[in-house]
């Protein structure tokens, strides 16, 4: 089928892209000032200790040899060993990526649903009080820094109202959740662990709300603008002039044409929300991928930085691929 062929072709294009990312990050982290060995040894280490540590992590080898070793490891699925913790980078990613992914995907899904519902409603009531209210609210939400917004939500939702659990951890340890993927809500659902599901959901609500409030504004604006454009377009006017019912007009002539413009923007927003998670995770002690990557960067933990950049690049490419497919499905004129 056409779409399958397209996806396969794009996945093959992934290889050179990721190879370029690998080379660039490998060089860039080594150009950055700072030394990973110094950070683990502390101030009292002798030059001999440092040389020994360097040899242990292979950092005494010529740079080409280091790169080839790293590349060889990648091919076999070995992302290296963290200099800070001494554990396998692959295992750490496995532990960290699930929770972050759950956070970002849920936040984006919520933001998309809200943006589409409110955006279309807003366009149909353009330039009335409700429309102005929706746009203003979105703008205010968008203007607040995510860490501050997170703190406000914690203050209101946990300290004042007490509706949500404390911002420490992702699930109540007493629920005995068996980790499978690392995404707690998903794990709870898979293991049919009811209490854990409730607890994970309760922990998720505030961070997801924070992140989606931050990203909803650009999506909403775009949905409203394209819905307005469709409402004034010739096909829509023609359908109105032929006296079609409101429901048919909305479902058949407005919604899909409006959504067709959304995927590429949603993919971009997904990218920025990966960046936003670092702060949100910090505020909610989420122990996710963003926090881990940031710490790796601060301590110049070469394998961790390389691996995290690689993962983010991979996500970007895959998300844009999904967006392109979604666009082609929504808009029959798009050839893929």
């Amino acid at each position: 089928m056409r779409i399958v062929r397209f996806v396969v072709r794009r996945l093959l294009q992934l290889i050179p892209v990721l190879l370029g990312v690998v080379v660039l990050t490998f060089l860039l982290v080594r150009v950055l000032p700072g030394d990973p060995i110094r950070t683990i040894l502390g101030p009292n280490a002798t030059p001999e200790d440092a040389a020994a540590a360097r040899a242990r992590y292979g950092l005494d080898q010529p740079i080409v040899k280091q790169f080839l070793d790293y590349l060889g490891g990648l091919v076999t699925g070995d992302l290296g060993t963290s200099i800070q913790s001494g554990t396998s980078v692959g295992a750490e990613i496995g532990l960290r990526i699930g929770p972050t992914f759950e956070l970002v995907v849920l936040a984006l899904a919520v933001a998309l649903v809200v943006a589409v519902l409110l955006g279309v409603w807003s366009a149909r009531h353009a330039d009335r009080a409700g429309d102005h209210g929706v746009r203003l609210t979105a703008l205010v939400g968008n203007s607040m820094p995510e860490f501050w917004l997170g703190l406000v939500l914690i203050l209101v939702g946990y300290s004042v109202l007490g509706w949500f659990p404390a911002p420490s951890g992702r699930v109540d340890p007493d629920t005995n959740l068996t980790p499978l993927t690392g995404a707690d809500l998903l794990d709870a659902a898979l293991t049919l662990n009811g209490p854990a599901f409730g607890s994970a959901l309760a922990h998720l609500i505030l961070p997801v709300a924070t992140l989606s409030i931050v990203v909803v504004a650009p999506l909403l604006r775009s949905v409203r603008a394209s819905a307005l454009e469709v409402l004034h377009s010739e096909p829509y006017v023609a359908a109105t002039a032929h006296g079609l019912r409101g429901r048919t007009l909305l479902r058949g002539y407005l919604l899909r044409a409006t959504l067709a413009r959304l995927p590429s923007l949603a993919a971009l927003v997904f990218g920025t929300s990966i960046g936003s998670t670092v702060l949100v995770e910090y505020v909610f002690s989420w122990q996710g991928f963003g926090q881990w990557a940031l710490r790796g960067l601060l301590y110049r933990d070469y394998p961790v930085v390389q691996a995290s950049v690689l993962v983010i690049a991979f996500c970007y490419v895959v998300v844009f691929l999904i967006a392109d497919v979604a666009q082609a499905v929504l808009d029959p004129r798009v050839q893929i």
Partner: peptide
Amino acid sequence: GHGAAICFQNPRGALSPT
């Protein structure tokens, strides 16, 4: 529609593309 229906100029533009 039922009373009076218009056949629009530029039919390609007046048909919904999706």
